[in-house]
Simulated assay, not measured.
Amino acid sequence: MYTEIVKIIEGGLSNDKEKVLNYATVLADNLDSQGENSLAKRIRAVLSKKKGALTSLDSFSTKPVDAESRMDIVEISMPQISSSQIVLSKYVEEEIKGFIECYTRRDNLLRAGLEMSNSLLLYGPPGCGKTTVAQYIATLTGLPLVTARLDGLISSLLGSTAKNIRKIFDYVAKRECILFLDEFDVIAKLRDDKNELGELKRVVNSLIQNIDSLSSDSILIAATNHHELLDPAIWRRFSKVITLEKPQMDEIGKLVKILLDNAPNNIIGNDKKLEQLETALLGFSHSDIKTIVFNALRNVIIKNRESLTSSDILKEVYFHAHHAIDDEKDFIRYLLKNNAPHKEINESLEIPLRKIQAISKASEIKED
């Protein structure tokens, strides 16, 4: 309730009628839910006297566009990511839940005289779940996810890029939502980079100004694979910074279980096979692991086989790393080193048993 009152005051002082009407509507709904029906009714009575249709808080139909290309510069979505679909380290998960808690309990923070933590920077290697985390936060908060489209945002007329950034922030200022800036380094590079034009540096200045003026009722999430390129002043604009790294052994196991949840296989329930796959998949990103497992499943379905084996996944791990199987002996040695049983290799991958046994004997690799 305190948040809505503050936003109504802000809208009144800035002569933003739409903001006043939107947050007054939310305030009335909240008062109703708290049993303050009489006051809620009075607020709605005042609102009903205003001429013109009220723009609902979740109305995102008029998206901003680039003046030159006429392309939309944002995409709107309502993600539905369950906790069972996302794999994070214990400490990253705690930080994300704490960030969400700051948002959902922002009235408490406001009463205590504290600013809420509403800006989050995610960085790490490609494919490690930055976009998924943004979608997960949108799911848990129930907020629409407004994703900036770089193909529309970055204009050939550099002066228009700064204008587009302003358009996006103006758009989210009147809506309770999450603004997601992916590939953030493209518009937030070091301003002392000698290879960049002066106009691009002004784009960064514009970005900083807009972040500073972002409403405390919205959430900003930025993601980058190249945090080393970000301007130092950009870092200071984020109340929370989280690194998303490649998954460790236990996280790989959880991810494999999620991916194979509805697929017949000889892995889930077999701790030894699962541990062997965790070792083989160590060093790959979340996205890589998903690609590897799904490629293995596709091959099983295409060949009309009833069940996926660990050898199927190991084959895709090898192929993903080398992009080819030029040396079959080397490939078989790889399978054996990862403790794939001779019979399983023979039946799943259609490699002659004699060849497997000969290579095993020559390499002095004994099957457990």
Rank of each mutant, 00 (worst) to 15 (best):
D66L: 12
Q80E: 07
S77D: 11
I76Q: 14
L57I: 01
F60L: 07
S77G: 08
S69R: 10
S56G: 02
K63H: 04
S82A: 15
P64E: 11
D72F: 05
L57T: 01
V74N: 00
M71Q: 13
Q85Y: 08
K63L: 12
S56D: 06
V74I: 04
I73N: 12
L57F: 03
S77K: 07
V87G: 05
S69G: 09
S82E: 15
V74R: 00
F60K: 05
S83I: 10
T62D: 10
M78K: 13
E75R: 04
S83P: 08
V74F: 03
S83W: 12
D58Y: 02
P79V: 10
V65E: 08
I81N: 15
S77V: 05
M78V: 09
I86R: 00
V74Q: 00
L54D: 13
I76D: 05
L54A: 12
R70W: 06
I81F: 06
S61G: 03
L57W: 02
D66I: 04
S82C: 15
F60T: 00
S82W: 12
E68F: 02
Q80M: 04
E75P: 01
K63F: 12
S56A: 11
T62A: 06
I86L: 03
I81R: 15
E75H: 06
P79A: 11
S59I: 09
T55G: 12
A67Y: 01
V74G: 02
Q85E: 14
T62W: 06
T55W: 12
I76S: 06
I76K: 09
S61K: 06
F60R: 04
M78I: 11
D58K: 06
T62F: 09
V87Q: 03
L57D: 02
S77W: 04
S59A: 07
Q85P: 08
R70N: 05
I86C: 03
S84G: 14
E75L: 05
S59E: 08
P64Y: 11
S59W: 09
M71W: 11
M71A: 14
S69Y: 06
S59D: 13
L57S: 01
I73D: 13
V65P: 01
S69H: 15
F60N: 01
F60A: 02
K63N: 12
P79S: 10
M71F: 11
D58R: 03
P64V: 09
Q85K: 13
S77I: 09
D72Y: 04
V65K: 07
L57K: 00
I86Q: 00
